[in-house]
Design a binder for these strands. Structure first.
Length: 110
DNA sequence: TTGGTGACGGTAT
DNA sequence: TATACCGCCACCA
């Protein structure tokens, strides 16, 4: 078989990206979820999720997606803080998100 | 084609 | 409690 472009695989990748962005959009204001939680829903590893947001995360509320410990890379943390204050997201004195209070599980939607 | 990299996560020290 | 290291896996140069 001639090695043509695998369009099905490319389409699968596109649907995967769309799935991730859809989950992010479903996170309620004032709540956050983690890369790992999204990974569990879309069926992939957490680094994949971060990679997707890095490339296609601009149009979605990316600040509602944080690391498992509730923190974000310093630069993004600066951009996210205003959103947290505006949405009333529970924060800790460290500047990270108060995970036990703010975590939203995309699988149980609570 | 091969190798390096990363918006992470968990475990070990 | 903080730091280091490894595992994972697709994307980019």
């Amino acid at each position: 078989m001639v090695t043509g472009p695998d369009l099905s695989a490319e389409d699968a990748r596109e649907r995967y990206v769309e799935s991730v962005l859809t989950v992010v959009e479903q996170v309620p204001p004032g709540r956050v979820t983690s890369y790992g939680a999204i990974a569990g829903v879309v069926g992939s590893g957490p680094r994949r999720v971060g990679n997707v947001l890095a490339r296609h995360g601009a149009p979605v509320p990316w600040w509602r997606v944080v690391r498992a410990d509730g923190s974000l890379p310093p630069s993004h943390e600066e951009n996210a803080r205003p959103h947290y204050l505006d949405e009333g997201t529970p924060l800790r004195s460290t500047g990270a998100v108060d995970m036990p209070a703010a975590f939203w599980d995309p699988e149980t939607r609570e």
